[in-house]
């Protein structure tokens, strides 16, 4: 019983639930105002940070919460970006609007391949995902419609006011980042979130409780792909040019993985910490070339050795702190009439 009482005392009070929308509102207002206050260079860096964070969070949803470790997530980054470029170039859709369709492209791709990939279990899935992304990369590189090896250029952007490109991508990025937080926190408080955790921890036991394992995983997979695709589309608005080697760069997943591992896989706050560590290292050692990558790899190794749950995950496990509470109130003693 002692365990339950400590959980009770540590579990978030109800005022936290009201606090969160307030914090989000403040964040959103800051995001709206930022482009008018902050300079161009800082604005671009902030957009990148927000996008990388949102991608990491999407990867976290699939790998940390649904237990499907993917090392092929770059396929959705590229799919979203290519979807946006193709809509703008071949259908004449305004690029800023086309971004909104990007998640449907990457989500659809995920939904189509899920029936094959979900036949594979654990490590088989992980590697199947990688092979799938390789296939898509090669096929896009061979497709003339998608520009082949020369890639696509977002020429429609030339006719637009260049002063607005950075602010609009920043707003999209802020939307993606805040959206990913809200989505994950909301999802994890829902029935589906509980189902996902149950499936991750023990799929056989979960299905014996009446949880549709396949369906829960499918929804998480499609949402994760859609979110990643949205971020990819926003990211490539900046350069206005995409190549198969850039859109489907395996480094995308390396970054997502690094952030989640260092911060804490399967926690909502983890990727926040991970993103800070990643960009901190990058900004501090960017000029040192390869040494910064060596350092990054070493950080991942050391974290695995000393704090296997990641920095935030370890803090959370030891002290029970959480910024964004998703744990439910355990049934109180009275429920059982004790």
């Amino acid at each position: 019983m002692a365990a339950v009482t400590t959980m009770l005392s540590r579990s978030p009070g109800r005022h936290h639930l009201l606090l969160m929308p307030a914090v989000l509102l403040v964040l959103a207002l800051c995001a709206v105002a930022a482009p008018f206050v902050v300079g161009e260079g800082l604005l671009r860096l902030s957009s990148e940070i927000l996008l990388i964070f949102a991608m990491a969070q999407m990867w976290n949803l699939l790998s940390g919460y649904a237990g499907l470790l993917s090392i092929g997530h770059q396929v959705f980054v590229g799919a979203g970006a290519y979807g946006m470029f193709a809509l703008s170039i071949h259908a004449g859709v305004n690029p800023y609007v086309a971004i909104a369709f990007a998640p449907f492209v990457s989500g659809l791709l995920a939904a189509l391949v899920a029936p094959i990939l979900f036949r594979l279990r654990d490590a088989y899935f992980t590697i199947g995902m990688w092979v799938f992304s390789e296939i898509v990369t090669i096929l896009v590189g061979k497709s003339n419609w998608l520009g082949g090896q020369n890639g696509l250029t977002l020429s429609a952007l030339r006719d637009m006011d260049p002063d607005w490109i950075s602010p609009i991508s920043f707003w999209w990025a802020a939307f993606a980042a805040i959206g990913s937080l809200v989505l994950l926190a909301g999802l994890m408080r829902s029935r589906l979130g509980l189902a996902l955790l149950a499936v991750r921890d023990n799929d056989v036991a979960a299905s014996s409780l009446g949880i549709d394992v396949w369906r829960s995983r499918f929804i998480a997979f499609v949402i994760s792909a859609a979110g990643t695709g949205l971020c990819g589309a926003i990211y490539f608005l900046g350069p206005a040019h995409i190549l198969p080697a850039a859109g489907f760069d395996p480094n995308w997943v390396v970054i997502m993985l690094f952030i989640c591992v260092v911060g804490g896989l399967g926690t909502i706050e983890g990727p926040i910490v991970g993103t800070i560590v990643y960009f901190g290292l990058r900004q501090a050692f960017a000029t040192s070339g390869n040494w910064y990558l060596i350092l990054m790899g070493s950080v991942a190794v050391v974290v695995m050795l000393v704090a296997r749950k990641g920095l935030w995950g370890t803090l959370h496990a030891r002290y029970g702190i959480s910024l964004i509470p998703i744990r439910r109130e355990p049934p109180s003693d009275k429920t059982f009439g004790i």
Partner: peptide
């Protein structure tokens, strides 16, 4: 051996970090 156990993910992530270190060290 410090990370092997029931969960297959920690060793995988450790070797992932190792691969980044090795690759870039070899470039150097």
């Amino acid at each position: 051996n410090r990370v092997v156990g029931k969960d297959p993910i920690p060793p995988m992530l450790l070797t992932f970090g190792l691969s980044i270190v090795l690759k870039n060290a070899m470039v150097e």
